[in-house]
Amino acid sequence: MAVSPDPDIEGEVLSDESLIARVAAGDTRAMEYLYTRYARVVYGLALKILANAELAEDVVQETFWRVWNRAATFQVGSGAFAAWLFGIARNLCIDELRRQQARPSAPGAGSDALALDAIPDPQASMDEVTWEAERRRLITSALSELPADQRQVIELAYFGGLSQREIADRLNNPLGTVKTRVRLALQKLKTLLQHQGIGLDDR
């Protein structure tokens, strides 16, 4: 569904909060802009967690569908639209991951489907890609500053959906050690990102 720029709404310069407020009022164009801004990151996240293109597509669709339906419940002013959006996406991914772990594994299409029938959406604008690339550079650089064991617990918790206790079991480490690593890792990430002068809030 192609959307031409709207004279009333310049999505690429409007903040997330302005867009979500318009979405809450039923504005599909604002929804288009939010989709263009974040679908690539949501899809990348889902692909990383689920390693299955078909399921990742479902996650993207369901995430933005929920944004559309729950836009009115988002508290404008909290300055955390991305956190809210990614939280929805990650929860969907982790739920799917746990469903898969609960049932016998079937030989799935895996990521092959991505290569075979994915026609990339041409609507991701260069500005969005630049914004993403900058954010990606920041977080990967900050993560690379962490000791390997701290990076590992972050990876297992966020992308693996494991609780601290499950991580301790998986790594055969004491629970207290895992808790310490998680705490230190997040504090260090926060400090590193703040030192780079990055405002952590939304656009």
Binding site: A39, V41, G44, L45, A56, E57, A83, R90, E132, K190
Partner: peptide
């Protein structure tokens, strides 16, 4: 806000156009 940056650590990828079409 820190955690909200973690998704960017996964390589972003453009979903197929059909996802946008179905959603809208």
């Amino acid at each position: 806000q820190v955690v909200a940056l973690l998704p960017y650590a996964a390589p972003p990828a453009t979903p197929p156009a059909r996802v946008r079409q179905r959603l809208f």
